[in-house]
Structure formats: structure tokens, C-alpha cells
Design a protein around this nucleic acid. Structure first.
Lengths: 186, 186
DNA sequence: TACAGCTGTCTGAAAAGCAGACACTTGCCC
DNA sequence: GGGCAAGTGTCTGCTTTTCAGACAGCTGTA
């Protein structure tokens, strides 16, 4: 099953976000653009926020899906930047709305996923307590999350993206260092 | 109603034609690419030729729809060339198959539509017998049809498109001349 | 010949989409 | 502040579309 109507709803909605801020988008206008019945919208989604939730969730999953196992965190960051650059306007409209919470929640989830993946690769050789691992996950997922959020807040400029990229490259052994710290080896 | 599944079938089919010749495309592969049930295909179309018929018909109608009233035939030709250039491979695959007949039938219809439209504009002032008008239609629709077919046969090159364009420009008063001939004024 | 793979058709059931109606909120104009 | 237009979210009953699974028939090939 593919459900192309649902797909069309999502695509149309995103395209509308490229034009207007979220607050100006109505269900009525959306279904008219899609050429579907208003009830068909409500069949799939409770309301616009629910639609946004799903879109963001799926986008987050698709980003993760592209990198089932990650060798360097920079790769992920590059992918994320490339993805985001194509939808700057829509992302900013969602981000600057009441849906910001949804957005941040999923961004945090994506960060956590990548960090876990990456940390596990880096620490493959080092036997380390589960509790310590969790601390590392939590700490660095917040670092990633914060950096990306900052990038968004600063208008997703290429300059700042490069700056963040540099940080990632410089700190490429972060997980190892942290693990050593936790184990009192430093 | 929009029926996005049907739309997806058509789009997927065209994209497959960009890759393989028609003879290598199966219903099975098509529905797998679409991620729909095989029966859903057969619900909409009897078979692949029926699908092709509909695609060509709709494309022909859409070209006509873009030019409800035509001031110069060159405009139409330009539009047609622009349209065709985007889908060279798919068009060639259909054209070089058993579906050629469908293709030509609709191309003839499009030619007829444009010629009628154009001739009526040019001959607006000249009162002319219906039978003569019909002769003009028939003659020039075949000219258009033949030129475009020739262009296709020669691989839709830009050079030949320019050449045909020049012919259209040179013969921009064709309808008037022909009318005069029919009326024995020349 | 046998077999694998695709075709076109048929079932019956489930999912999706529809029109039309309803009460409710909200913003705006007089 | 009352009326009103426009959008919302929900409901009902109906139609259309999509589905899984099965079937016999055709075709190329080992």
C-alpha cells in the first residue's frame, strides 16, 4: 500500500509552507489545492498539527534510514544540512510556529540516534559500563541538538554550517575522550 | 476527486519508459515500483496499451489546453518542442513500438486542432466556403503532422526543430494564400 | 515436456474517499 | 453587542478504490 492521497496532502502542505507561514494555512485551502474532499483529510489526520507531527516524524526517520550505520558524525551532519537546505522556508515556518515543540522533539531523536550509532562504533574496542555509555549518549546528543538548533536560529547560513562542521571534525574523538574521563583515566 | 494512485501509475510508467523500451516493461514490475496491488492496475486499465492510450490522450489534451486560442502557429510549435524535449527517451520508446498508431492518431488530432484554430484567426476577414475551409484544414494539418513526425524520425534534434520553425515562419500566410488559390484569385 | 513467470480475470472484504449536515469557534463589520 | 461570514472538527451513510488470494491461460526456455 502506498496511499498517494496521503502523500499528496503532505507534499501540498509543504509546498504551501514555502509560501505562507503556518498560521495562514487552513485545512480548507489545503484540500482545495489537493482536489480532495475535506473529510478525506480528516480521515487521515485529526488536524494540521497531527499532519505536521507525521511529516516531521517521517522526515526524521528517512534521514536516519539513509544512514543505518554511521562511520563519521560529519557525514550525518552533511546529509542533514543538504536535506535542510532544500526546504529552508518550510522548515523556518514550522520552526517559528507552535509546532516548534514537535520539531525539536524529533530533532532530538535524530541526534540521539546518530550519536548512539557513532559512539558505539568509536567505543567498539573499549569495554564500558552501560551507565557511562548512557551519560555519553545524553551529553552528546544534546551537543548535536543544540548546535543544529543554533544553526536554525541563525537562519541556516552556509557559513555557520561550515563552522559547526569544523567543530565536529575537530572533536572527532570526543566519545573516546569522554569515556576515558568517566573511567578516571585522564 | 484527484485519484493520486492513477496519477502515480502514469508517472511511474513514463519514468520506466525513460529507462527501458516498452517491450521490456511488465505490469508486474510497474505495480511493484508503484507499491500498489496488481489488481489496482487492472481496476483502472485493461492493459498497458490502454494505459498508453490514456497517457497520450491526456498529454495531447494538455498541450491543446495550454493554447485555447492560438495567434501564431510558431508559438504552438515552440510549445510542442519544449514539451517533447523533456521526454525524448519516453517518446521515442512509445513511438518505436506497437503503440505508434495511438501516438500518431493523437498527434494528428493536435495538429488538426491547432491548424483549425490558426486558420480561423487568419481567415477571420475572408468569407470562405465551408468546403474550402475543410480542404485547408485537412491539407495543413497533414503538413504539420508530417513535419513533426519527420522531426521525431530524425531523433528530435534541435537543428531540425529550428529548420521546421523556419518553414513555419516563412509560410506564415499559408492559409490566406491557399484560400485565394481555392477562390481562383491567384 | 515441464516448469517458471507473467497475464488477465474473478471473488469478497477492507480501506479510502465522497456529499451533506451539524454545532461550535472566531474575527469582523455595522 | 448582535449578526454574519468563514473555518473547524465530527458524524452518518453511501460509493469508489484498493487489497489479498486464487484461477486458468499464454510463452519462452531448459
Amino acid at each position: 500500500m502506498a496511499n498517494y492521497t496521503k502523500k499528496a496532502i503532505k507534499e501540498t502542505f509543504i509546498s504551501m509552507l514555502e509560501e505562507h507561514p503556518l498560521s495562514e494555512i487552513t485545512v480548507k485551502e489545503l484540500v482545495e489545492k489537493c482536489e480532495i474532499n475535506r473529510n478525506s483529510f480528516y480521515y487521515h489526520y485529526q488536524d494540521i498539527p497531527a499532519l505536521i507531527e507525521e511529516i516531521i516524524k517521517e522526515e526524521a526517520e528517512s534521514i536516519i534510514g539513509k544512514y543505518p550505520s554511521v562511520s563519521t558524525i560529519v557525514e550525518c551532519f552533511d546529509a542533514l544540512v543538504e536535506f535542510a537546505s532544500h526546504r529552508k522556508r518550510a522548515i523556518m515556518h514550522i520552526y517559528r510556529s507552535i509546532s516548534r515543540e514537535v520539531f525539536e522533539r524529533h530533532l532530538m531523536a535524530v541526534s540521539e540516534y546518530f550519536v548512539k550509532n557513532y559512539v558505539n562504533t568509536v567505543l567498539a574496542g573499549n569495554p564500558i559500563a552501560e551507565a557511562d555509555k548512557k551519560t555519553i549518549y545524553d551529553y552528546y546528543k544534546c551537543v548535536c541538538f543544540g548546535l543544529i538548533l543554533d544553526w536554525l536560529n541563525k537562519g541556516m547560513t552556509d557559513e555557520y554550517a561550515r563552522e559547526i562542521r569544523r567543530i565536529f571534525l575537530l572533536k572527532k574523538d570526543w566519545a573516546k575522550e569522554f569515556a576515558a574521563l568517566l573511567q578516571g583515566q585522564v
